[in-house]
Design a protein around this nucleic acid. Structure first.
Length: 416
RNA sequence: GUGGCUAUGGUGAAGCGGUCAACACUUACGACUGUGACUCGUACAUUCGAGGGUUCAAAUCCCUCUAGCCACCCCA
């Protein structure tokens, strides 16, 4: 039996990679426009980093991490998300000392041991962005606008933005007890999962899809009504700025996040087109994270985009690059000329293809067609002798005579 | 971790106990001796996810395993 890839680890084949480049380039363009710089951090970190940031009791840390002991007896973990590593680097290199505001983005593979399904894999890719050093709601709004711009840039209008506020360590505990009080009275009406959630993560009962639970939690207290003065003002202000920039959004007071470090503003970009994987991007504010990791008390906000899910939404659009010119040769005698042209044209940024195996002219022309070359040219004894050749535009079959000189050819192809 | 479904060539698929395992696309070569697309011809699975079993006979029936997909949980 041939060796296959690990479950949930996928190959991105040449036919798909064009779509990935398209997404990545759009993100780079939009993020750099907003003043973000790329940071590249390792795919593996000390296990403790994730326990302390994401939270020991979360599902991610409890059962989804690729954790193992390396040969030096250290517990290491393949990163399940990007923010923790970026903040570790931020603290370790004291980036906050160079500039009070830091805007970073990253892209790369993340790893979570889950059962694969549509839009969910064990190795998956995220593009994320983080602003640290600002707690002004204006930065929340800029981050949200940037995220929406990204989706606009790649031509996706369907996914929509939902926002919420999770409050802060001041007001969340009070809300949590209020919610628990409410749920306790209706515990009998909740599904088995929600009864369990009541003990582990009561907020989760709010986005349960079981009809009985939806019914039972109607009228449950909302976090938004329990925000403290500062949090309330912050959230109002975020909405104010979003309204100013006419970014469409809706408020989802039942939205819950799976990572412990989130505070105040949280958000998701959701789609109805990916089955149960509705979130294509998500994030939030994490004002306590940096100090929790041993850094100074600096606030932050960021998001991550799920690349596989975005790629799925983009569908089968063709992103492949096509050759400008296909050079066909009559026989071995012309291969020197063809190769020199290939070499010269490539150095002039013209995308050229030629036949490598001395096949029949018929085969070569078929290949030119299949590769969707814009132009083709046949080089035989006559052309080598005269120094001129007929260049054929493949779309309509029209031909033009051009000297077999790199500059002349490059110019002729550009004019079209 | 739990459930459901599916496994036939590079791809999409017919076949439902008995001749060389349809067909379409792809690929290769040719009809057309210096020009693609359309057309036509030829070739391409000793083999039906793997391993056992039933039978004179298995891709077709039974068992085990493995993989994939989808859903739950959770998440990007």
């Amino acid at each position: 039996m041939a060796i296959t890839a690990i479950k949930g680890f996928n190959d991105i084949l040449p036919e798909e990679s064009g779509r990935w480049h398209y997404i990545e380039q759009a993100a780079r363009r939009i993020f750099e426009l907003n003043g973000f710089s790329e940071i590249r951090v390792p795919v593996m970190e000390k296990t403790e980093l994730f326990c302390r940031s994401i939270g020991d009791a979360t599902d991610i840390v409890e059962k989804e991490m690729y954790t193992f002991i390396d040969k030096g007896e250290n517990s290491v973990t393949l990163r399940p998300e990007g923010t923790a590593g970026v903040m570790r680097a931020f603290i370790e290199h004291k980036l906050y000392a160079q500039d009070p505001v830091t805007k970073l983005f990253y892209m790369g593979p993340m790893f979570r041991y889950e059962r694969p399904q549509k839009g969910r894999y064990r190795q998956f890719h995220q593009i994320g962005a983080e602003i640290t050093g600002v707690c002004d709601p204006l930065s929340d709004a800029q981050v949200l606008n940037m995220l929406v711009s990204f989706f606009h840039e790649i031509g996706l209008d369907e996914p929509s933005l939902q926002i919420n506020s999770l409050g802060c360590p001041e007001c969340r505990p009070a809300y949590r007890s209020a919610l628990c009080l409410f749920l306790e009275e209706r515990l009998e009406n909740l599904c088995e999962d929600c009864k369990r959630r009541f003990g582990t993560n009561p907020l989760r009962t709010l986005d349960c899809k079981v009809p009985g639970c939806v019914e039972a939690t109607k009228g449950a207290p909302s976090m938004l009504e329990h925000l403290c003065g500062d949090c309330n003002q912050h959230f109002d202000s975020v909405r104010h700025y979003l309204d100013l920039s006419t970014t469409p959004y809706s408020i989802n007071s039942r939205m819950v996040r799976g990572l412990d470090y989130y505070t105040r503003t949280t958000f998701e970009v959701v789609t109805g087109l990916l089955g149960s994987q509705s979130a294509v991007a998500a994030g939030g504010r994490y004002d306590g994270l940096i100090s929790q990791l041993g850094g100074p008390a600096i606030p932050g906000i960021g998001f991550a985009i799920g690349l596989e899910r975005v790629a799925l939404l983009l569908g089968q659009r063709a992103f492949a690059k096509v050759p400008d010119l296909f050079i066909a040769t009559m026989g071995a005698g012309e291969r020197d000329t063809a190769f020199s042209l290939l070499d010269g044209l490539l150095k002039s940024d013209v995308r050229v293809e030629l036949d490598y195996e001395g096949k029949s002219l018929k085969s070569q022309m078929r290949r030119a067609d299949k590769l969707k070359a814009r132009f083709s040219v046949v080089i035989g004894e006559n052309e080598v002798k005269s120094g001129k050749a007929f260049f054929k535009r493949m779309s309509d079959g029209s031909v033009m005579e051009v000297a077999l000189m790199v500059d002349d050819i490059a110019r002729a192809l550009q004019v079209q």
